[in-house]
């Protein structure tokens, strides 16, 4: 196991290096620079800024310099927010996005699994149709509409929850729900189809022939086998959600990481682009690793510690 994880960590470093390199050059290929704006800067000021941030150096020097700094977990200063570094932005925004995202994932997973399992157990009955209508709504309604509808009813009309901001637990409920809606719907559909497939298997008939009740068959025989597709979806999903959502964070005025992904690009804020990309990649690679480990725990046929010598 330790050996497997070490090997995976080495692969992760290689992937990160490739991601950093690709982002670095793609970013430079895009026209404009961090100081391009509608009001043109006087040339001497722009030259001074370029000099200050090292943008006048040859590309290989900038590239090498950047790699060195990233290796020390230093993403450099932001080009737009003059007084803050990229590290500051991430360490301020990420805990908020993480808390919001984790809540949303829990909601999505719990409700999605329940809906999916109910739909599969009552295949082609009203429970199935009901669950799937919820799922279709969840997938097709965009999150900004979901968010405003939730705000309208829960905050404005009934006054149950705060409209926006990020202060107490009460503030977290609406954004978490809005963020959870579409992954929940997706998980529900995934669970349903995978449960239906599992329930048609011979070993479910065997379980039934032992005289086990429907509940026991579902819990002990079906769910574990139906979980694999959901688990594989959880990897990229969690990485996406815990690094923040631009739309939801904007609507609810949440100081998370999500907005930086979008604004840094329109700002050509080189260091922030690089910083959030690397950060996102790390989270993604780690969640994929966790998914692979979870695979091995769920399905004994998948031996992650495998390799040549593996038991």
């Amino acid at each position: 196991m330790a050996k497997y994880i070490t090997r995976r960590l080495i692969y992760m470093v290689v992937s990160l290096y490739l991601i950093v390199t690709a982002t670095f050059f793609l970013m430079r290929l895009a026209p404009g620079n961090p100081f391009t704006s509608e009001k043109k800067l006087p040339p001497e000021i722009e030259a001074a800024l370029n000099e200050h941030f090292g943008l006048n150096d040859p590309w290989y020097a900038q590239y090498g310099d950047y790699l060195l700094r990233i290796a020390q977990w230093d993403f450099g200063p932001s080009f737009k927010y003059k007084t803050r570094t990229v590290n500051d932005l991430i360490s301020e925004g990420f805990p908020v996005s993480l808390a919001l995202g984790a809540q949303a994932i829990l909601i999505a997973l719990a409700l999605g699994l329940i809906l999916g399992i109910i739909a599969a157990l009552y295949h082609n009955k009203w429970q199935d149709y009901g669950a799937m209508i919820i799922a279709v709504l969840g997938i097709s309604v965009p999150s900004f509409i979901m968010a405003t509808v939730l705000q309208y009813f829960f905050a404005i009309k009934w006054g149950l929850l705060p409209v926006a901001r990020w202060d107490s637990f009460m503030h977290t409920i609406l954004p978490s729900l809005a963020l959870a809606a579409s992954p929940m719907a997706f998980i529900a559909r995934l669970t349903r189809s995978s449960m239906l497939e599992v329930l048609a298997n011979d070993y479910i008939r065997t379980a039934k022939s032992k005289g086990l009740s429907k509940g026991v068959i579902t819990v002990k025989h079906a769910i574990r086998n139906a979980l694999l597709p959901v688990v594989s979806y959880m990897g990229p999903l969690s990485a996406g959600i815990i690094t923040g959502s631009f739309v939801i964070e904007r609507i609810f005025g949440i100081p998370g990481l999500g907005s930086h992904f979008v604004t840094s690009i329109s700002n050509r804020d080189y260091t922030v682009i690089m910083g959030v990309t690397v950060f996102y990649s790390i989270i993604l690679l780690v969640s994929i690793l966790l998914v692979d480990i979870a695979y091995g725990l769920i399905d004994p046929r998948i031996k992650i510690a495998g390799g040549k010598k593996g038991e």
Partner: peptide
């Protein structure tokens, strides 16, 4: 059952 390969729960 007929097929012992599929009639047992793999997990």
């Amino acid at each position: 059952f007929q097929d012992p390969m599929t009639s047992l729960n793999p997990t």
